[in-house]
């Protein structure tokens, strides 16, 4: 039968992608889980011992973990608020009839395409440097004492840099959603005497709610893994001030060579990310049915 044949062929065509991804997921994940139960340091090869949940215990009771956990929450939360709030405002602005809309749009989305390493270094040196940076010059010109951004307000600085990178993403997606808004409905509401405020609150915002959800979920996934921006600016410091969970695991694995501890941290990071992922997958899955 042709259909049975087609179905078999279809399965064959999907097989490489599915099997490769399965291997990519299962093998490292299994290894991470296994390592997380071992006392295993790369500096002492051949000394691996099964220790059960000891690594988890160490990782979770390490004060650095709670600081990192808190930093991660503050960082992700603040960036979400800034980018979604700013994104809505920018999308509304770009949706207005203006001259040269295309050019403004290009300028607004540009930061998203700048590689994270470059944006972090440009902000760190050209803008935030306490002596020669542009911000320092602006502060002095206005009669203030310049602050050393990355050592005095390190977490805020990271939040500023990463928000700058992700604001375009939120704006672009919200603008796309905004443009599919029913104009006639808006005009009808306007004729019925609804002001701009209530039109935004009762028509625009509900229309955007799906896009906002998608932006929040996708950004959360990426923001939980912010790495390069921290590595090249503060290196997690001063102290642990900008250490996130991702960065903590990196330090444990590649700087302290503690495979067991890093694996336990990795498992915890996976669990945290999965809590977000479940919601994201649900909302995208719902979309598949339409």
């Amino acid at each position: 039968m042709a259909t049975a044949q087609t179905r078999a062929a279809a399965r064959l065509m999907a097989a490489p992608a599915v099997l490769l991804l399965l291997a990519w997921m299962v093998i490292p994940l299994g290894m991470t889980l296994y390592f997380s139960t071992l006392r295993y340091n790369l500096l002492m090869p051949g000394m691996e011992v099964f220790v059960g949940f000891e690594n988890y215990e160490f990782f979770v009771t390490d004060p650095a973990f709670w600081i990192a956990f808190q930093n991660t929450l503050v960082m992700v939360g603040s960036i979400l608020v800034i980018t979604v709030g700013g994104g809505i405002l920018l999308a509304l602005l770009l949706d207005q009839p203006i001259w040269g809309q295309g050019v403004v749009r290009l300028m607004v989305i540009a930061p998203f395409f700048v590689m994270p390493v470059v944006s972090a270094l440009v902000w760190k040196n050209l803008l935030m440097h306490p002596v020669n940076g542009l911000f320092a010059w602006l502060a002095r010109s206005a009669g203030f004492t310049p602050i050393d951004w990355l050592s005095q307000v390190p977490l805020l600085s990271i939040i500023m840099i990463v928000s700058w990178q992700w604001l375009p993403f939120a704006t672009l997606i919200l603008l796309t959603a905004l443009q599919s808004l029913d104009r006639e409905q808006q005009e009808a509401a306007e004729m019925d005497g609804a002001g701009p405020g209530s039109r935004f609150w009762y028509l625009t915002l509900p229309h955007l709610s799906r896009a906002i959800t998608v932006v929040i979920l996708i950004q959360t996934i990426f923001l939980l893994s912010v790495f390069a921006e921290i590595l090249v600016t503060t290196g997690g410091g001063p102290g642990n001030a900008t250490t996130t969970i991702t960065y903590l695991v990196y330090v444990q694995a590649l700087l302290q060579f503690d495979v067991g501890g890093a694996s336990a941290g990795g498992v915890i990071a996976i669990i945290l990310a999965n809590i977000v992922a479940i919601f994201l997958i649900r909302s995208i899955g719902r979309n598949l049915d339409r």
Partner: peptide, 24 residues
């Protein structure tokens, strides 16, 4: 649909969770 969503879910795996095994 399940396979597609599962594929998507692999993208949610934080890189740092598999850093150690991939490195080794």
């Amino acid at each position: 649909k399940d396979v597609l969503l599962w594929m998507l879910s692999t993208k949610m795996l934080p890189a740092v969770g598999v850093l150690v095994p991939i490195y080794l």
